[in-house]
Amino acid sequence: MVSPINLDNLHSMTDGNAEFEREIFRLFLVSSREAMASLRLSCDQNNNEMWGKEAHALKGISLNLGADALGALCKHAQESAAAPQADKEIMLAALEHELTRVHEALQPFM
């Protein structure tokens, strides 16, 4: 199965500084969990603006990490901020699934 993350670019940016990478991986875990929780809340509250903002936030950190598939899902979610709640439930499930894969892939580096 293809890895959900490609850390080549990130390693290049950090000059392979493992300690710093651990720190920012931890930040990713925290920030991405917060963003997912906010996406869930915005879906429940039918708050399209919040949905768009949170999808955008998660997209930014996913792309910078090298989690391209997760970034693509976020982009789709951001551009579908006005979608019906049922569609958002499906997007949430896909996002949660991919985010879990990303978190698991980061574990060896933590």
Binding site: L10, M13, T14, D15, N17, F20, E23, I24, L27, F28, S31, A57, G60, I61, N64, L65
Partner: peptide, 15 residues
């Protein structure tokens, strides 16, 4: 405003 992206960019800039 994303702490992850902020730290990463600052680190690159300091290098």
């Amino acid at each position: 405003d994303q702490i992850f992206s902020q730290k990463l960019l600052c680190d690159v800039l300091r290098s």
